[in-house]
Design a protein around this nucleic acid. Structure first.
Lengths: 345, 345
DNA sequence: CGATTCCATGGAATCGATTACACGAGTGTG
DNA sequence: CACACTCGTGTAATCGATTCCATGGAATCG
C-alpha cells in the first residue's frame, strides 16, 4: 500500500536520491548535514530498503543458503543453529532449507536460492536420484557451472570438486570396536544409512576396517541398510531380533534410527548394555538420559558449522579454500557391557 | 561470470525479450513456434531467471517466511517441517529463520525478510525485550503497519490483531490433573516457561484452574519459572529436590526442559512414576522410549502447520482470516503412578 | 591572487525481468 | 469490399536502489 522508497526519503530530506543512497549505505562522501537529515527522514518514514532493487544493481545480497537433509533430525538442527550463529557474526543472513532427504526438494530449494542470487551455498547433498546415476542432480550441476561459491557440509558428493567440511569417524569407530572387543564381543551388527550418502558409506567402511583390525568377522550379513530415519531404525531392530545367531552388540549410524531401534528392543524386553550392547552415532541430549546412558560417536557441530561458514567466506572473497575433515569422538557409557555368554534366541 | 539473462535467451531464440518473458512465464499469448524455440534456448543456455528483477516489477515473490523460536527444539522443528510441506503444496518457498528465543534475532530476520518482500510471514513471536514493555518489537510493529500478511503461530502477542493458530491445553491439563488426583496426588509442581510468552502464561493458568477444579492447593510456591530450554529444566529439577515438602508430581511445560529435569532426577536416583510422577508437554519420540515412558500433553503439529499456511494463504489472497485454536491431547503413560505415602526428603 | 585539488551533490544510466501500448497480419461479418 | 476483431509480436516504460560522471563551490598551494 504505502511502499516508501528512497525517493520519498530523499524528498523529505530535501536531497537527491543519490545522496540519500550514499548516506544510507554508509558511503563516506556525504556531509554531516545531509547525513543527519536523511537518517532522520528515513526513521520518520519507516523506510525499509528494497533488497530486490539493491542487489539487482550491486550483485551482493549478503545472504547464504543452507540446505540440510532433515530439520527434524537433531543433528542437522544443531548444525543449522551453528551455521546461523556463525553467519550472523559475519553479517550474513542464512536461509535454511529442508530437503527432507529428497533430491527433488533439494533442487527446488536450490533453484529458488539461485534465482534469489544468494552469495553462497552450504550444502548437505542429498543422495542421487532414483536412476542411481553417478551424476550430481541438475541444480547442483547448475551451482557449479555458474561458479556459485559452494561448500559441501557433512557429506561429500562424488565428482564434485567443491571444498567440503566433514567429520571422519575412522578413529572413533576404531576405539568403539576396541572397546567392544575388550568386552568379548565378536558378532557386532551395523544399522547403516543409505549408501549413496558418503557418510553412510564411510561409516560402514570404517566399521569393517575396525572389525578387521581386531580380527573380527567382517561379513556383510550383519549389515542392515536403513535410511537415517526413525522407522528404518525400528525395522533394523526387528531384523536383528530375527537373526539366527543374534549379535551381542550393534552400532547405529544416526540418532533417529537409534531412537526407532531402542523403542523396538525395549518393547521386546531387551536391555541395552546387558542383553545387547549399543553404540549410536550423534550425541543428542536424550541419549545421556536413556536408561542406561548410551555410548555414542559424536561430532562437534558448532565447530563444523563455524568452519563451514569460514570456508564459504573464503570462497566468496575469491580466495581458494581447502577442505576440512574433523575428528569425531567416541564416548563410552553404560550401554556397553560384557558380551552375553549364550544367545537365548 | 556468465549471468545469462532473458535477453540472451531471446537473442538465441530469435525473438524479443518480451516474447521470451511471455513464454517463460506461461502467458498464453504466444505462438507454438516461439514457445518451442524459447524453451529450447532457455534449456540450452541454462537460464535461471533473476528473482530480484522479477519481483521488483511484479511485487509477488511466491515465498513466505517462518520464524521459529529455536530450531533445536523438536517441537519447532516439527512445526517447520509441517509448514514447509504445506507451503510447498501451494507452490510457495519457505524461508525458515531461527530467533533463538531472542527478540533481537527475531527482528533481524524479519527485517531481512521484509526487505526481500516475502508475500507473507508466519511468526512464533518472541518475548518482549528486556524493558518488559508491553509493546511488540519494532520489526513486528513494522510488519503490521505495512500490512504484510502475518499469522501468529503457537503463541499470541498482546496488542497484535493478526490472526493466530494456537493450541489450547485447557482440557488436556484438566484430564492430566484429574488423572493425578485419582492417584492421590495433592502437591503438584509446575516447571513453566517464560511468562511473557502466551503459551507459558496460558499453560500455567490452565494448570492452576485444573488444580482448583479438583480442590487442590493452587499456591504459587510450587511454580518454577524456566525459559523453555534444557538447562533451565535442570535448574527446575534441582529446585524441586530442594523443596521442604517435596511434591509427588510435576508438570513440565516443554520437552527440552523435561530432558534437563529428567537427567537431574535420574542422577539423584529418583525414579519417574514411583518417586515422582511426571507429565511433560510435547510428545517427542524419545519420551515414549524413556524408562518409564513419559505421560505427555501434545499438539498435532502437522495440523497446526497446515492450518497456519491455510490462514496465511487466505490473508495473502486478500480475504479475511479467522483464528484457530486447536486442542491438545493428554496421553497417559507409566511415568504416572500412585502418590508416595511419605516424603523421604 | 590565480590555479589546482578536493569534495559533496545531482542527473542519468544501469541491473533484469515484466507489461502497457501500438502495430501489422490474418479472419470473420454485414 | 470495408470494418471490426483477434492474435502474436516488438518497443519502450517501469520497478527501486546503486553508481558513473559531471559540476560547482570551497579549500589549498605556489
Amino acid at each position: 500500500m504505502q511502499p516508501v522508497t528512497i525517493r520519498d526519503v530523499a524528498r523529505a530530506a530535501g536531497v537527491s536520491s543519490a545522496t540519500a543512497s550514499r548516506v544510507l549505505s554508509g558511503n563516506p562522501a556525504t556531509s554531516e548535514a545531509s547525513r543527519d537529515r536523511v537518517t532522520a527522514a528515513a526513521a520518520e518514514l519507516g523506510f525499509s530498503p528494497n533488497a530486490q532493487a539493491r542487489s539487482l544493481r550491486s550483485t551482493r545480497t549478503d545472504s547464504i543458503a543452507l540446505l540440510i537433509s532433515d530439520v527434524r533430525n537433531p543433528y542437522f538442527a544443531d548444525l543449522a543453529h551453528a551455521v546461523e550463529q556463525a553467519a550472523r557474526n559475519r553479517g550474513l543472513v542464512t536461509f535454511i532449507g529442508n530437503a527432507n532427504e529428497d533430491p527433488a526438494q533439494q533442487d527446488e530449494f536450490l533453484d529458488a536460492m539461485m534465482s534469489r542470487r544468494v552469495d553462497g551455498v552450504l550444502l548437505v547433498p542429498q543422495g542421487l536420484d532414483s536412476d542411481g546415476g553417478t551424476r550430481p542432480s541438475p541444480a547442483v550441476e547448475h551451482l557449479l557451472t555458474r561458479d556459485i561459491p559452494t561448500v559441501l557440509v557433512d557429506r561429500t558428493l562424488a565428482g564434485v570438486a567443491a571444498p567440503h567440511v566433514t567429520a571422519s569417524s575412522t578413529a572413533a569407530l576404531h576405539d568403539a570396536v576396541a572397546r567392544l572387543a575388550r568386552d568379548g564381543h565378536r558378532r557386532i551388527a551395523f544399522i547403516g544409512g543409505p549408501e549413496h550418502t558418503s557418510t553412510a558409506a564411510e561409516r560402514y567402511a570404517d566399521f569393517r576396517a575396525a572389525l578387521a583390525a581386531h580380527g573380527l568377522d567382517a561379513g556383510d550379513d550383519l549389515h542392515f541398510h536403513g535410511d537415517f530415519r526413525t522407522p528404518s531404525g525400528a525395522e533394523g531392530a526387528r531384523w536383528l531380533l530375527g537373526l539366527e545367531e543374534r549379535p551381542t552388540a550393534v552400532v547405529i549410524a544416526d540418532s533417529p534410527m537409534a531412537i526407532g531401534a531402542l523403542a523396538v528392543w525395549r518393547e521386546a524386553g531387551l536391555a541395552a548394555g546387558t542383553d545387547l550392547s549399543v553404540i549410536a552415532f550423534d550425541d543428542i541430549e536424550a541419549f545421556a538420559l536413556h536408561d542406561p546412558p548410551l555410548a555414542t560417536i559424536s561430532h562437534d557441530l558448532t565447530d563444523m558449522g563455524r568452519r563451514a561458514v569460514d570456508t564459504l567466506a573464503d570462497l566468496m572473497a575469491g580466495q581458494p579454500a581447502a577442505s576440512t575433515v574433523l575428528r569425531s569422538t567416541f564416548t563410552d557409557r553404560a550401554s556397553i557391557g560384557p558380551a552375553a555368554e549364550r544367545n537365548p534366541a
